[in-house]
Amino acid sequence: MIRLHGVSLVYPNGTRALDDVDLEIEKGSFVFLVGHSGTGKSSLLKLLYREELPSGGEVVVDGVRVDTLRRGKVPKLRRNIGVVFQDFKLLSHKTVWENVAFALQVTGTRTRDVMRMVPRALDLVGLSHKSRMFPSELSGGEQQRAAIARALVGNPKLLLCDEPTGNLDPSNTTEIMELLQRINLKGTTVVVATHNQAVVDRMRRRVVRLEHGRILHDDERGYYFRGLGQTAVLPG
């Protein structure tokens, strides 16, 4: 689903966000990207939906070379990728229903399909009963579920989550993670960038740990730190 080969990313101000990263993520898998803030987690996600272009290396998403993709083709790529953020990015003047429908409407989906797809997405995240409410009337967890519904309404193959629980309390965090797991079980590839150790350690999924723009370790059924509670050892 995702293949990064020798990818580096240097921002114009000289910050080296990613340094020679190789990474492969299988279709249908669930992967945590972990590390302190500023270690390149968000940058890596941004490369996948082409918010950023790599300074070097290859980025392939679902068979598409993202790093050399023409600007005109970017919208089509993004319709295949759902993205969820820490701050939800909902539109405050639109209801939950309108926020979710917005993603379809602005990509030219027929009204008939919008009417069919929005309820399904709201049902999936369990917000059908609050579809007429505005984001300000929802709890943080509900807002994030609305955002997930918006990310998923177009049936993307890949869901990217950048600190999805960063603004949530523990019980909402658990709910959201369960939701993401459910989504993954339906076949969507899910990549979650987080620095929430408890979440990662509880879920026991693949963990890719970044530090200073490099992959420090990459474990199936891993922990936030390699070896529970231990400080990581530099490889090689």
């Binding site: 939906y49 005109g72 970017v74 919208p75 089509k76 790529l77 993004r78 319709r79 295949n80 993205v83 990015k89 539109l91 917005f102 993603a103 602005v106 990509t107 030219g108 918006r150 177009g154």
Partner: peptide, 17 residues
């Protein structure tokens, strides 16, 4: 700008935006 960012994120074409 928030709406535009979201439109770009979900794959609206520049022409549409």
């Amino acid at each position: 700008r928030r709406e535009i960012a979201i439109m770009q994120l979900v794959g609206a074409t520049n022409m549409y935006i």
